[in-house]
Design a protein around this nucleic acid. Sequence first.
DNA 1: CGGCCTTCTGTGAACGTTCACAATCCGCGT
DNA 2: ACGCGGATTGTGAACGTTCACAGAAGGCCG
Lengths: 340, 340
Amino acid sequence: MAARPTMKDVAKAAGVSLMTVSRVVAGEAGVAPQTAARVEEAIRGLGYQRNDIARNLRRKAQDSRTIGLVVDDLANPFFSALARSVEDEAYRRGFLVLVGSTNDDPRRERDVVSAFSARQVDGLVLVPTGGNRAFFRAQMARGVKVVCVDRPATGLDVDCIAVDNRAGTATAIGHLLDRGHTRIAYLGDRQEIWTQNERFVGYTEAITEAGLEVDPVLIRHGLRGHRQAAAAIGEMMAGPNPPTAFFSGNDLITLGAVEAGACRRFGLVGFDDFVLADKLDPPISVVSQDPAALGRTAAQLLFGRIDGDNAAPRSVVLATRFIDRGSGAMAAGSTPVRGG
Amino acid sequence: MAARPTMKDVAKAAGVSLMTVSRVVAGEAGVAPQTAARVEEAIRGLGYQRNDIARNLRRKAQDSRTIGLVVDDLANPFFSALARSVEDEAYRRGFLVLVGSTNDDPRRERDVVSAFSARQVDGLVLVPTGGNRAFFRAQMARGVKVVCVDRPATGLDVDCIAVDNRAGTATAIGHLLDRGHTRIAYLGDRQEIWTQNERFVGYTEAITEAGLEVDPVLIRHGLRGHRQAAAAIGEMMAGPNPPTAFFSGNDLITLGAVEAGACRRFGLVGFDDFVLADKLDPPISVVSQDPAALGRTAAQLLFGRIDGDNAAPRSVVLATRFIDRGSGAMAAGSTPVRGG
DNA sequence: CGGCCTTCTGTGAACGTTCACAATCCGCGT
DNA sequence: ACGCGGATTGTGAACGTTCACAGAAGGCCG
């Protein structure tokens, strides 16, 4: 309950001026050793700790040594791995990290970023929701550096780190084509999410380049969560001329596909690797990306900006890695049909 | 690059005093509507945003509306789920969350907590490492509220939310005993970790209460990660009189057990549920705890303290849930042996 | 028409720290 | 003895905001 001691208290206890305490705490040279010792004893005695908030206020020229990290959902392993590597990078530089989840809700994103900015963060690592373009422009005018990760903020000219979603998807589709599949279904989350749209484009391109047609019956967007994904698969498989393979646009959908098809009824390749993918029966082939690398790169870029790098916004594209575990094979009883 | 506008700038632009701006920004009553309108226009024109750091400095009586969350490893799904629910609870109350991982390293824990405290956090949700007892006492003397979660801080008299690790483990062991296992091995992480030790105690009690003896050959502590766990299992199975079932003390170890025994060579029950546990062959039975509930409860307790609750420290114990998926059964070819 | 209350607005100080500069002490050269 | 330079320490202002209070209008009542 006792109020925190301030430099004033320490000064009184040590019988010196407040400024001398400040100097000792800051580790500045030019304080007589005995004086410093006396001050340090007072500090220990009172349990004094510098108030970094007041400090940052005064030395305004400098930064607040805090960054904000805004992700879609911190509980999602992909984002939490990303968050951890951002935090590690910040820790190494003596920065603190404020964290917030948006739930893919532009309003909550606004709230969170606004609160961060009011706390004078030096920069932001952001997984943008898609809205709030003008809002972010205003933030940046105020000097907050922004780096996007996983997806770009549409219409906002900032650094962005993401993987090559199209190429990664094309590889996956190519793999399925190689295994004889010609009716390959696409299952994705909401198409407004940039990554989902990119993957869908990759799918479309790969299919048409192979000389096949994109059959609208085989396309499903807007699948939120594994339940809906499993249901969608059930419907497709029950329909006429069902697909022989599925491409799933994220890990949750892949999970739904696993639920729906534990019995090897179709080929499957998913975007995003996940724990135990290799222990399932069959083991699931995936397009894998490295969230830690994304986070690390984003943080490094952000700190570069904070350190004064004013070059034109950079766009960093990391590669995906296709991991073949066998789930892309043609299922035993399925009948490949050429065309649609 | 332009310096952020301050209330002074807004005041000048609107032709009023700084205090009037402050009133408008704070939404206080008692400002003439026209004046308020003029001020608000100036605010929009300049893109002004209040500096909450300066604000919190002045109204020191109040809190900084920031809490710190310190976990072992944010990338671990258990802790990230916990983190997410803490963050949600904070968001609902208009608090911000500083986050840090300790990596189970007392020094890093100290660094992080110290930096948080220097930033005047109102409270801390903490997954303690085990060291730093005196350090935390000092922090609390400064008025920082601390709530421990997942494990108590030994020798520190604060609120703590955890599950009943002993009872959960005892249930798991009982389940294995019921299925005829008499040689049940224990695989745990470092015994210095409180949860691990509790689980080990639960194991020991359940075994002895069943009239069996605890065979040191079947006990392994200090397994870090799935690799070591798989190796340990390999050794035990290769030895004389091998166990017919394993209890694994955390999810990583369970993973190692899955790797080592995909072919149903032994019974298995793990502590902590994990994604896809039900999709493996065989599906894995687990003692499940709810990290989101842990986080939510911890946050609620912390905010209670921040709001002035001075009651004696509470210890909240949440129940675990045993999920029987079948992996505890006696494997086909194994020979149950009574006694050791 | 004076007094007083109400409504609105402004002033000075303060939060805890650092910056820029001034003051003090000491030794030493001339 | 005088002043000068270096080392050490102190003083006042400032960062951007809010608190406590004071002042300036205007209205209403007796």
